[in-house]
Design a protein around this nucleic acid. Structure first.
Lengths: 190, 190
DNA sequence: ACCTGAACACCGTTCAAGT
DNA sequence: ACCTGAACACCGTTCAAGT
């Protein structure tokens, strides 16, 4: 089918937009720049995503799905491998132009987004908390479900913060590494 | 003197801009909205701060100075009071329209700012690390200076992350509180 | 010294018009 | 179904002109 051989415009928009937002944030994303990169006009981007908020919502949904696949791949691994893989995920952002987690950007720029996006961002958080809870349960066997949830949320927040601060330091991955080492040494990350 | 009785325009710009940036970020700040709020024209804002980046730099510098004054007020307190006061500072952002730390926003939006701002943001970080290092030294008496620095950086990053995630949850201060409780319980914050 | 109106090239968004 | 040119009200920035 033709539709499979040619590059799908909607997919091309999502891909380029995701890269741009992870580099510069949602407010800095330009429909005209995006269109130019793909080779269409900005009005065409509006055909697929009427408003910027629609594009943002699609981006976060897709982003959460992709994270879910990675989490699935780590699900049957040991605690050390699963937690190590999860942390490596956060670290990988620095390999490509000091990018940042989409969820972190959406939290910062949440006021620029419609109310509806609150639920979209919450769903993204929930996916992370769920993975971390399951992973932590491998290590902290006797722990209550509520305690695992609290710990998962704390580790997620701490890693987002480590990424944010390392980004502010020019995308220095060793800053991220040293902070994570402290998280492990103090016992936040078991 | 007249200059003392009337409200200084430059000060009014800085004050309004700070509030706006802490709510919505740097990219969302509008010179025209800012001018309208103060009662001048946007071209007048450019007279005081030629480019938005100049305003951002002045904001972060002022912000760091204000933080320094608060740190001084906590300097001669006990460890518990100093650390408690520091954490209360982060929590206070939620009391007023889900604001965020200026440093956190600048880290996220660092790509929208000129290279020069890297040093400005770094100076802001350094002020926090210094305060935390001095505070931690009250509790961890025998610790090496390097270890205190690492721990200070980790706590700072973790608190920025807690604020970011609670902001993404609609500015729920109890989310921030629960995360901080985990930081304390696990030993990241002694 | 401080402010302004007008212009510039940008921006998201809309819509009638094309294929 | 998908794309586009043109228009709209916005944006940061510049500058000659005002006081």
């Amino acid at each position: 089918m033709k539709a499979e051989t040619r590059v799908d415009t909607k997919e091309a928009i999502l891909s380029a937009a995701r890269s741009s937002v992870q580099r510069n944030g949602y407010n800095a994303l330009s429909y005209r720049d995006l269109a130019a990169e793909i080779g269409i006009k900005s009005a065409s981007v509006h055909y697929h995503f009427p408003a910027k908020a629609d594009l943002a919502e699609a981006l976060v949904d897709r982003y959460r799905e992709d994270a879910g696949k990675i989490f699935q791949g780590l699900a049957d691994k040991s605690y050390d491998e699963a937690m190590g893989g999860y942390i490596a995920l956060f670290r990988s952002f620095f390999d490509d132009c000091n990018q940042m987690c989409l969820g972190g950007f959406m939290s910062a720029e949440i006021t620029a987004l419609p109310e509806k996006m609150t639920g979209t961002v919450a769903a993204f958080y929930a996916a992370h908390i769920e993975f971390l809870r399951d992973t932590l349960s491998k290590k902290l066997r006797g722990a209550a479900a509520k305690d695992l949830d609290e710990r998962a949320q704390a580790i997620f927040a701490a890693l987002e913060g480590a990424q944010l601060i390392a980004r502010g330091r020019g995308g220095d991955a060793t800053v991220f590494d040293r902070i994570v080492t402290s998280y492990r040494a103090t016992g936040l990350i078991p």
